[in-house]
Design a protein around this nucleic acid. Structure first.
Lengths: 189, 189
DNA sequence: GCGGGTTTCCTAAATCTATTAGGAAGATGC
DNA sequence: GCATCTTCCTAATAGATTTAGGAAACCCGC
């Protein structure tokens, strides 16, 4: 029997593609086996469970996203950096909806620690260097930014912003303007 | 054979309870049948599919949430209203994580139109009456608030804010302070 | 280049979920 | 009390997950 040359890495990568095509929810060990033209049971030499597969796809997406964010942030500061990072998340979600959904997958503590999650927090924090915030306000602001990025992207993609005017493109730029203004003028406790 | 007295409504209600207990993802027609001590096929006299069940649970959650929001908003304005509404979402998510996840379920356009989704948008908009915003900034602000509420709650519940200091309670109040400040001082385009 | 050990893939089988078809018993209305 | 509709059932199909155990392919040292 010729071997298919499967590895965990290739499975995660193919799983990510599959997620973009049919949605992260629909990523299944069976579908993946089909894609490699291999019997389902064969995949269990490479992954422990369906949950394990999803975890690996999630971690791949988090890495990709962190890489993009790192690139986007290089050489930028202040509002420029804010906009760049925000757009990385939004663009990634639009280009790779399945992967973006995967990045939202709830990881167990061990996987979370090994994931690129920490890099994301660090990069959001890096943005704030361009603003005049000290702890604990810096952490508050990091959490606010994370909330807005994630919340906006997920509502927009879920159709939560309906179809009405003004368009979401305009809102996005105005929201980033507003965040910039807020960070420059963070209220005292 | 004695009848179990199933109705779509009771199924949705029981499904919501089940979601809170085991997670919305794990809500299954089979599990629901078990809970009513009835054969799986019997449920198909009341619902079209598993997806249909999830839709009904989502709409139930959206109604409950809108009812709570409506109560919380009565007689309040300005920052008081902002805080009240924000806390409704957060508290609901904590008390009923499965239902809250259900409320995030992506509805088809017909169900979405029949859902309480519109009431939610209206209530967020109502908050802004206490601030000096006109269109299209009002819509931008509605979307920002929705993003923050949803994003914060979902990151917090997903463990995205780790466990480090400062605690998320403090961040939450400071984020609401910041939003209030931002709305009172919305930047010109 | 050959024998042994490991890895990868297979067949087979159990279990769970979703869904449909068709039947029988309970409820309802006249 | 009969006809009809509804609700629940049995039976069956199909797909997903997961485990057990086997055989061929690959790799390593000799």
């Amino acid at each position: 029997m010729a071997r298919a040359g499967l590895t965990m890495d290739r499975l995660a990568r193919a799983g990510a593609e599959l997620a973009d095509e049919v949605g992260f929810e629909q990523v299944t060990v069976s579908a993946l086996a089909r894609r490699f033209d291999v019997k389902v049971a064969s995949l269990y030499s490479h992954l422990k469970s369906s949950h394990d597969l999803k975890t690996k796809i999630a971690m791949l997406a988090l890495e990709e996203l962190a890489d993009r964010a790192g690139e986007a942030l290089a050489g930028r500061a202040g509002k420029d950096a804010l906009t760049a990072l925000a757009n990385v998340y939004r663009d990634y979600a639009r280009q790779h909806p399945g992967r973006y959904a995967a990045a939202q997958f709830r990881l167990d503590p061990k996987s979370a620690a090994a994931s690129a999650g920490g890099r994301h927090a660090q990069m959001t924090r890096a943005i704030l260097r361009g603003y005049d915030l000290t702890e604990p306000d810096q952490t508050h602001a990091v959490r606010l930014l994370g909330s807005v990025f994630h919340g906006y992207v997920s509502l927009e993609m879920g159709g939560g912003f309906s179809h009405s005017a003004p368009d979401t493109e305009e809102t996005w730029t105005r929201v980033l303007d507003a965040l910039d203004a807020l960070l420059r003028n963070w209220p005292a406790p």
